[in-house]
């Protein structure tokens, strides 16, 4: 089953978390790292990755630097001070969301037992 839709809203969180853990990364590296970490379960498409990176950059969460690698220029992204704070906020949001979803999908035992006659 394609779970692309489930992940779509979390792309910024994924990018921010990866950059928080790895310091600086470039576009292709992010796609490969996600693939590796999720054992191929989640594949970030190029069409979704770059707009997200550019949006986070425009919002001031990411800064960029260029470096000559082999015979080409490479654009590296890293977190700004604002971005570092945003990672904490996004992860908190995500945690709360997961808890809510868990509560919805797996109601605690006490609430289910109320209906037992």
């Amino acid at each position: 089953m394609s779970n692309k839709k489930l992940y779509r809203g979390s792309l910024s969180t994924i990018i921010l978390k990866l950059l928080g853990d790895n310091g600086r990364m470039y576009g292709y590296e992010i796609t490969q790292r996600v693939k590796e970490l999720t054992k191929g379960e989640l594949k970030i498409t190029e069409g979704a990755l770059y707009p997200s990176l550019h949006k986070l950059e425009a919002e001031g969460h990411l800064q960029v630097e260029f470096e000559q690698v082999n015979n080409r220029m490479r654009k590296y992204y890293s977190l700004t001070e604002d971005g570092t704070k945003e990672v904490v906020n996004k992860l908190l949001e995500m945690e709360m969301f997961l808890q809510t979803m868990q509560g919805l999908l797996q109601p605690p035992l006490s609430s289910t037992t109320e209906f037992i006659p």
């Binding site: 470039y26 770059y50 080409r72 654009k75």
Partner: peptide
């Protein structure tokens, strides 16, 4: 262009 060229080159090398 610069970002896309690096993306293509990295992917082709992989």
């Amino acid at each position: 262009q610069i970002e896309l060229v690096d993306h293509f080159a990295s992917a082709i090398e992989a």
